[in-house]
């Protein structure tokens, strides 16, 4: 093999590898990226059970119900127009409370309850997922 050829071969392999990586990433992203959805969006276009999404909204007033096991809670996430029932087992963040913003990660079960695997609450003014900022004001108005 001539000197020029080895560099060319390596360059071609590298380009193919990077393009391959791009394809792998796109396929992976199509299957695994979790969409951010509000209750209104879910009411308009239901999410199939088992598909992971992030659900964002306000914890409805008076909706938090503690289950007998002491670690499971049921609550309702709303955005002023639609509501989604949520169940979560675990330790809720310190700032998780009624009438404040929340992002729940998880998926719907077959009966339409959102089973959250992780809950993010508003930490402080500096830590807030951008889509939540508008909602915070909406919640305060309503």
């Amino acid at each position: 093999m001539k000197a020029k050829h080895q560099r060319l071969t390596l360059a071609i392999i590298a380009v193919v590898a990077v393009i391959g990586a791009g394809f792998l990433a796109l396929i992976g992203l199509r299957d695994n990226a979790a969409l951010f959805r509000t209750p209104t969006e879910i009411a308009a276009e239901p999410v199939p059970p088992g598909q992971s999404i992030r659900l964002g909204g306000m914890v409805a007033d008076g909706s938090i119900v503690q289950q007998a096991d002491g670690v499971t809670i049921d609550f309702i996430v709303e955005d002023g127009e639609a509501q989604v029932p949520v169940r979560f087992s675990g330790i809720t963040p310190d700032l998780f409370q009624e009438n404040s913003g929340v992002v729940a990660e998880g998926a719907f079960d077959a009966r339409g309850t959102f089973i959250a695997t992780n809950i993010l609450a508003k930490h402080d003014e500096n830590y807030m997922p951008p889509p939540m900022e508008g909602m915070e004001t909406a919640g305060n108005d309503g």
Binding site: A21, A25, L29, D31, A33, E105
Partner: peptide, 29 residues
């Protein structure tokens, strides 16, 4: 290749944000 995959996964939410919808890319990807 792994670097590209991590980079694309990290930037993807920023791209979709600019396109008007929000996704999060986490451990499953």
């Amino acid at each position: 290749v792994i670097l590209c995959i991590v980079l694309l996964g990290t930037l993807y939410p920023l791209v979709t944000e600019a396109l008007g919808y929000s996704v999060s890319v986490g451990p499953p990807y």
